[in-house]
Amino acid sequence: MTTKKIDVIGMWVFLASEVCLFLGIFIAFMIYQHFNQEAFHEATLNMSFWSGTINTFILLTSSLTVALSLAFYKAKKIALSLGSLSISIFLGVIFLGIKGEEYVHHFIELTSVHTKPGIKLFYLLYFIMTGVHAFHMIIGIMVLIFVATRVYRRHYDFNDPTGLEVAGLYWHFVDVIWVFLYPLLYLGNLK
């Protein structure tokens, strides 16, 4: 069996485990949402719809550029491949920046004594969920940077750039998690 297959399968198996990690916290969130509907609804109204939406857009774009980078590499267009990869990394950083800006406000809400307990619970779960996600983003950005240096050195086989593919898989997964977080946390006011 080629090592390519093994690495890709390894990543898939790892992602299965990651899914369970997020599933646990999603379920906890939904249970509490069920018990504190009013408070959670009120809290989502306070969420910045635009930060969430822009961030979703950013991540989806970055996923696209990662996919493009793989295609370019296979076509031996190193400059383009590296370029799209850099865009992904850049977008990832922007995402974290916007998130950080939001965090400042939310942290004040979380720690304020005036916040109702139910809303505090929302913010706490919000911090845990997006925090774990952001942690994955940071790892993802580091992985992409590492992969970029290897793309630059043409380290990967052009027909079969496994490392790039595996990194891309991981990055897509992190994006998909966000796609689930976004409606749960930001779209309460559309209901």
Binding site: V13, A16, S17, E18, C20, L21, L23, G24, I25, A28
Partner: peptide, 9 residues
């Protein structure tokens, strides 16, 4: 693989 993450969380 599937149960340990829940413990982690």
């Amino acid at each position: 693989l599937l149960a340990t993450p829940v413990l982690g969380m």
